[in-house]
Lab assay of single mutants.
Amino acid sequence: MTYRVRIENADGEVVTIEISADELREKGLTLEELLPPNARIVEVEEVEP
């Protein structure tokens, strides 16, 4: 499974990243732990691999 994640950074700019569930598991991280300081998740969407 892959996630498309929209993130708002500290400057108010919204960027989109895609990350797979396998990648998260391998790194032992959650989506929140990948965020840079002062950023927030705006939207998470599951996409087909």
Results as ranks from 00 to 15, higher is better:
Glu33Cys: 06
Glu13Ala: 09
Glu43His: 14
Val42Phe: 05
Gly12Pro: 00
Lys27Ser: 12
Arg6Ser: 13
Val15Ile: 14
Ser20Tyr: 06
Leu29Glu: 02
Asn38Thr: 05
Asn9Pro: 01
Arg4Gln: 06
Arg25Met: 11
Leu31Tyr: 02
Arg6Tyr: 10
Glu8Lys: 09
Glu33Ile: 05
Met1Asp: 05
Asp11Ile: 07
Leu35Trp: 03
Val15Arg: 08
Glu26Cys: 13
Pro37Asp: 06
Leu35Lys: 02
Val42Ala: 02
Glu13Gly: 09
Pro49Met: 13
Arg4Cys: 04
Leu35Ala: 05
Ala21Leu: 10
Glu18Leu: 14
Pro36Ile: 03
Met1Leu: 15
Asp11Ala: 11
Leu34Phe: 14
Thr30Gln: 07
Glu46Val: 15
Asp22Asn: 11
Thr16Asp: 05
Val42Asp: 01
Glu23Trp: 15
Glu13Lys: 11
Ile19Thr: 02
Thr30Ala: 06
Glu48Thr: 14
Arg25His: 10
Glu26Val: 10
Glu18Trp: 15
Leu31Ile: 11
Ala21Cys: 07
Gly28Cys: 06
Leu29Gln: 07
Thr30Leu: 05
Glu26Met: 12
Ile17Arg: 02
Thr30Val: 05
Leu24Gly: 01
Glu33Thr: 05
Ala39Val: 13
Glu45Cys: 10
Glu8Met: 14
Pro49Thr: 14
Thr2Asn: 14
Tyr3Ile: 15
Pro37Gln: 08
Met1Phe: 09
Val14Met: 12
Val14Leu: 13
Pro49Ile: 14
Glu26Gln: 12
Leu34Ile: 12
Arg25Gln: 08
Thr16Phe: 11
Gly12Lys: 03
Lys27Gln: 07
Val5Pro: 00
Ser20Asn: 08
Val14Asp: 03
Asn38Trp: 10
Ser20Ala: 08
Ile17Met: 09
Pro36His: 04
Ala21Phe: 11
Asn38Asp: 11
Glu43Ile: 07
Pro36Leu: 04
Glu48Gly: 14
Leu34Ala: 12
Asn9Asp: 06
Glu8Arg: 10
Arg40Lys: 12
Val42Leu: 15
Lys27Tyr: 06
Lys27Asn: 07
Val15Ser: 11
Glu45Pro: 01
Val14Tyr: 13
Ala39Trp: 15
Leu34Pro: 00
Ala10His: 07
Glu18Arg: 05
Pro36Asp: 04
Glu8Gln: 12
Pro49Arg: 13
Glu46Lys: 11
Glu32Cys: 11
Thr2Phe: 15
Ile41Val: 08
Thr16Lys: 02
Glu23Gln: 09
Glu23Ala: 08
Glu43Met: 13
Asn38Ser: 06
Arg25Thr: 08
Ala21Gln: 08
Val42Tyr: 04
Arg40Ala: 04
Glu13His: 10
Val5Trp: 01
Val5Lys: 00
Tyr3Met: 08
Gly12Val: 00
Val47Lys: 05
Val14Pro: 03
Ser20Met: 06
Leu31His: 00
Glu18Val: 14
Leu34His: 04
Arg6Cys: 11
Leu24Val: 04
Thr30Lys: 10
